[in-house]
């Protein structure tokens, strides 16, 4: 993989598309310094500071590439959080949901038990898990797939991160459930402070929620453009071929009219 340039704007959803093995997930993992053994990231990944000296100014950035472990630990789960494809593996099956939500709040934010619990309840309300108070003492298996993914999103949001990395967050869900989760992601981004990097192969999902779309192939960026432009007037041949292969895309329609 080489030479990926991405910029996430505050309150926006940036989509990362491409086929398997194109490096979408590795890009997301590099941000967190979680690349598998033997892989290293070079270049620069900068995260805007929102607190402390220099917040808001041009110099107020934390460099993540090659950052010491201590710095990364303060970033992971705290300022940059991640949601994975399969909520049944990303949640701990033997811990109640409340515990999974409050543990890292207490660690990162130094909250006391009652405060953390109150905050967890508010979070579950925000992602619209029914009966938030009761849900805190339940286990992941007691929820449906869609509810579990909502809970995983709540866990990610627990420490008020500025960036949410969502890796195929709706791929394992039914379409009717997926629609609800996409609405939730859009609302969270529209809330203002959160930027979302959405990794997905599904260009339908991309078209529904992403503001900017970057298409990757074999570890390289082939095209990066605002959503409307990428879907209606793609510049790159590869992007065009991806779109043409989809039922319901603007290109397929055009093809049928021409016939």
């Amino acid at each position: 993989m080489g030479g990926i340039d991405l910029a996430l704007s505050r309150g926006g959803i940036h989509g990362l598309a491409g086929e398997s093995g194109s490096g979408k997930t590795m890009t997301a993992l590099a941000v967190l310094g979680l690349l598998p053994g033997g892989m290293t990231a070079s270049g620069s990944i900068r995260l805007a500071d929102t607190e402390g000296p220099g917040a808001g100014s041009d110099s107020g950035f934390t460099e993540l590439v090659g950052a010491p472990r201590g710095v990364l630990q303060g970033v992971r789960g705290r300022r940059v959080a991640m949601v994975f494809q399969d909520p049944s593996t990303s949640l701990h099956p033997q811990l109640p949901v409340g515990r999974q939500l409050t543990d890292h709040m207490r660690h990162h934010l130094g909250l006391g038990k009652p405060e953390a619990r109150a905050k967890a309840e508010a979070l579950l309300d925000r992602v619209r898990v029914p009966d938030a108070r009761g849900a805190l003492s339940k286990y992941p298996h007691q929820f449906s797939g869609g509810q579990r993914q909502r809970i995983a999103i709540a866990v990610a949001l627990a420490c008020d991160p500025t960036v949410l990395l969502a890796d195929e967050p709706t791929t394992a869900l039914d379409v009717t459930v997926q629609a609800g989760v996409l609405q939730l992601l859009r609302e969270l981004a529209d809330g203002g402070d959160l930027s979302i990097l959405l990794v997905t192969h599904d260009l339908g999902v991309m078209s529904a929620v992403a503001d900017e779309v970057t298409v990757m192939r074999q570890g390289l960026v082939v095209e990066s453009a605002p959503r409307q432009q990428l879907f209606t007037a793609p510049r790159d041949e590869y992007t065009r071929s991806l779109l043409a292969a989809l039922p319901g895309s603007s290109f397929e329609q055009a093809g049928e009219d021409a016939r």
């Binding site: 996409l182 339908g204 529904a208 319901g248």
Partner: peptide
């Protein structure tokens, strides 16, 4: 509920 890849940004 199926999102369409038309670039219109419509939520399903």
């Amino acid at each position: 509920a199926i999102p369409l890849p038309d670039g219109a940004g419509r939520l399903p």
